[in-house]
Simulated assay, not measured.
Amino acid sequence: MSEMIYFDHAATTPVHPRVVEVMTPYLTQVFGNPSSVHGFGRKARQALEQARDAIARYLDADPQSLIFTSGGTEADNMAVIGGALAHQEKGRHVITTQIEHHAVLHACEYLQNLGFEITYLPVDDTGSVRMSDLINAVRDDTVLVSIMYGNNEVGTIQPIEEIGRFLQERSIVFHTDAVQAFGVLPLSMRELPVDMLSVSAHKINGPKGVGALYLRKNTAFSPLLHGGSQERKRRAGTENLAGIVGFAEAVRIASEERVERVAKYKEIKETMLTIWREAGIRYQVNGHPEHVMPHILNVSFLGIQTETMLMNMDLASIAASSGSACTSGSLELSHVLKAMNLGDERAHSAIRFSFGITNSVEEAARAAGKVAQIVKRLQKE
Rank of each mutant, 00 (worst) to 15 (best):
Q64H: 13
I172E: 02
M1C: 10
I99A: 01
H93M: 02
R52G: 07
F7L: 13
S321K: 01
Q158G: 05
G183Q: 01
P17M: 07
S200G: 12
E267T: 14
A10P: 08
V262R: 10
Q112A: 11
L48P: 03
G329F: 13
E332F: 11
A44S: 14
S128K: 15
S349L: 01
S317L: 00
R170E: 00
V285K: 11
Y120Q: 10
E191V: 03
M148T: 13
I253C: 03
K90D: 11
G155D: 08
M131Y: 09
L66P: 04
F116N: 03
I157H: 05
N205R: 08
Y265F: 15
V299Q: 04
I163N: 02
D141V: 09
A372M: 09
V251S: 01
R190Y: 05
V20N: 09
L27I: 10
A248K: 06
R130A: 14
I244N: 00
F301L: 02
L66D: 01
E169R: 10
H291L: 14
D314S: 15
L85T: 05
G243K: 05
S198F: 05
L310Y: 08
E49D: 13
E307M: 10
Q305F: 08
H16E: 07
R52P: 13
V194A: 08
D124S: 05
M311C: 10
Q64E: 15
P25N: 02
A79S: 14
G83Y: 08
L105D: 09
H288I: 08
S324K: 00
